[in-house]
């Protein structure tokens, strides 16, 4: 991609201060998103995907969470250095986020209308206050855009009166109300059943396509990412371990972790089901020295336990953080992951 990136996360470090120490969750995260680009962020639960995105919007629960290093540039300006009035211009209008669980992301004691109108009110350009009627009309149009039937009635409902799919659509409507340039979608539809999830994802595709919105799609499903993104970032234990154009990553992945993830996807055509990647993600209180994947890595070397591998270009546009690839233009080294047959 050429031109200036829309969002640039540079070397982001975040820690959570808890009783007994600090959880060093993000360990130098680098992500770039260009205008209109569709980016996937893939990793296991607890890899720090949501934390990264909350940091982007500066909504981490401070002071427990602390950004200890790095920059987050949006249109060239550092979000972390912004004063509240500048931040107000970014949130909703520049970047909007759809949170993981729509049940938790909606305030339980306010009606849909009350929540929508608060969002719509501030989605406008500064300097003009909308009348009550305009706010209501805009709320209704916004709800119609996400194919919700009977929006007038919905405005008077509380979240508990609605189905999971409706809540998800309302969250999407609120996020898109201000026409953001970048939409962050955190595992959209994961909490819903599969058919509804599919509907939600397709609705999202459609809305994003129509407006040429850039999107960061967070997921732990490689299938979801494959169909709808231009580039994929693979995250493990607070690090980006690999990033590549989507087609390239699926044809040729470098990092042993990515290869493990790929092997863990059940295939329709024979083979069997993978045992997954043995072991668990490390505890953040005392993360392993060097490469955080080293305790689980079948190809671990001496250097991995002492030094942290940096992201480097392995082939054009394809970066990997692994000592197996010390120079540019590498050959793919295949890690054999145990795939049991029969499954």
């Amino acid at each position: 991609m050429s031109g200036h990136p829309l969002l640039e996360i540079k070397d982001l470090y975040v820690q959570f201060n808890v009783y007994g120490g600090a959880l060093k969750v993000l360990d130098g995260v680098n992500i770039e998103v260009h205008p209109g680009e569709k980016v996937g962020l893939v990793g296991e639960t607890g890899a720090g995907k949501t934390t990264t995105m909350k940091a982007v919007l500066h909504v981490l629960p401070e002071p427990a969470a602390q950004i200890t290093g790095g920059e987050i540039l949006f249109d060239g300006q550092d979000i972390l250095k912004m004063v509240p009035s500048q931040l107000k211009q970014i949130r909703g209008k520049g970047i909007a986020m759809i949170f993981q669980d729509p049940t938790l992301a909606l305030n339980p004691v306010f009606t849909v209308g009350e929540q929508m109108s608060a969002v719509v009110q501030y989605s406008m350009e500064a300097g003009r206050n909308l009348t009550k009627r305009e706010v209501r009309e805009r709320s209704i149009t916004t709800l119609k855009e996400v194919s919700l039937a009977d929006p007038e009635r919905l405005l008077g409902n509380y979240p508990i009166q609605l189905s999971g799919g409706m809540r998800q659509r309302i969250c999407i409507a609120m996020a898109l109300a201000a026409r953001p340039k970048l939409l962050i979608a955190d595992e959209p539809g994961t909490s819903l059943d599969v058919t509804i999830q599919d509907q939600v994802l397709r609705l999202l595709d459609e809305l994003v396509e129509k407006r040429n919105t850039a999107i960061i799609l967070i997921t732990h499903s490689l299938g979801v990412v494959r169909e709808r993104t231009d580039r994929v970032y693979v995250m493990y234990a607070g690090n980006i371990v690999e990033n590549a154009p989507t087609t390239q990553l699926y044809s040729r992945s470098f990092h042993p972790y990515t290869q493990g993830l790929m092997a863990a996807v059940p295939k329709l055509t024979g083979g069997g089901v993978s045992d997954g990647i043995p072991g668990r993600m490390p505890a953040y209180l005392n993360p392993p020295q060097g490469c955080r994947f080293s305790p689980r890595c079948p190809r671990v070397m001496e250097i991995c336990r002492g030094e942290k591998p940096m992201l480097r270009e392995a082939s054009p546009g394809h970066q990997v953080a692994c000592f197996l690839y010390p120079r540019g233009n590498e050959l793919e080294i295949n890690t054999k992951w145990n795939v049991s047959s029969g499954g």
């Binding site: 949130r91 909007a96 992301a105 305030n107």
Partner: peptide, 23 residues
């Protein structure tokens, strides 16, 4: 304060004062 709906309301650009004293 740690709930997602508060983070979501902040993230959508609702002013801090309204988030704290209303939502």
């Amino acid at each position: 304060l740690g709930k997602d709906y508060i983070a979501a309301e902040r993230a959508l650009g609702i002013p801090e004062r309204q988030v704290l004293w209303k939502f």
